[in-house]
Computed example of a mutant assay.
Amino acid sequence: MTGATAAPAPRGAGGAPATQPERTEASRRALIDATIALLAREGYRAASVARIQEESGLSRGLVNYHFGSKLKLMEAVVERIRTAYKDQTVGEHGRETMTGLEQVLEMFGSYLNRMVVRPEGSRVMLVLATESVSDAPEVRSAVQEAYTGLRETMIEMLRAGIADGTVRADLDPVGHAAVLAAVLRGTALQYFVDPDGFDLDGTRAAALAMLERDLSADRGSRRPPPPRR
């Protein structure tokens, strides 16, 4: 974005000049958006502070001003992705009315579907996870927190299913949650490495059928919901 002009001044509600808190939030949001775009498009090494500021169209020095460091910005990126996923799936698909088994199947299917519809979040988490065990160990704690959060959500769903009788009572929620998360992450890796050659639809259908057979208290009498488009 060499030669890019400065981003237009943010406006508040009703088109009035933005307040200082609104300007601050707009700048933070722009920097996070720019970081996500760079990470998804070019990887971690390309996402230097200088490139992030250039991508955002904001003045130099604002990464440190708003976040204190690149690490804190990366932590904000991870939190944004986690929050966006929750906001766009939990309420959107009405999980609060589902059984525990239905919640697991719906979450699994919607996660894989979002890799096509909204790939940036999954791609960025994959980039950060890979870098956290090699060139960027400083972001590992943020990735660990996100991974732990996904497993804990699955544990809650599995326990809810055991309680409501839709998930078999002898199942280990902690162990199964780890396996479910591993299948999701592994599927994401294969898809992003070879999006044209990897059969995501077939993988989704096979995974949902396998999960239904393994988890269901009725051992196969139910059918997983169709993938949401």
Results as ranks from 00 to 15, higher is better:
58 L>E: 11
58 L>M: 13
63 V>L: 11
63 V>C: 07
64 N>C: 01
65 Y>H: 13
65 Y>D: 10
65 Y>S: 12
66 H>S: 12
67 F>N: 00
67 F>S: 00
68 G>I: 02
68 G>L: 02
69 S>G: 00
72 K>A: 09
72 K>Y: 00
72 K>Q: 08
72 K>R: 13
72 K>G: 01
73 L>M: 07
73 L>I: 11
73 L>W: 06
73 L>S: 10
73 L>A: 12
73 L>G: 09
74 M>I: 09
74 M>V: 10
75 E>S: 04
76 A>N: 04
76 A>R: 06
76 A>L: 02
76 A>C: 01
77 V>S: 05
78 V>F: 02
78 V>H: 03
79 E>T: 03
79 E>L: 02
80 R>K: 08
81 I>S: 04
81 I>V: 12
81 I>R: 05
82 R>D: 12
82 R>F: 08
82 R>P: 01
83 T>D: 14
84 A>N: 14
84 A>I: 02
84 A>V: 07
85 Y>Q: 10
87 D>Y: 10
87 D>E: 14
87 D>P: 01
88 Q>E: 14
88 Q>T: 13
90 V>W: 15
90 V>F: 15
90 V>D: 15
91 G>C: 01
93 H>D: 09
93 H>A: 05
93 H>P: 04
93 H>M: 08
94 G>Q: 04
95 R>L: 15
95 R>Y: 15
96 E>R: 15
96 E>Y: 12
96 E>V: 10
96 E>I: 08
96 E>C: 10
97 T>V: 08
97 T>K: 09
98 M>A: 07
98 M>R: 12
100 G>N: 11
100 G>C: 09
100 G>P: 06
101 L>Y: 11
101 L>W: 12
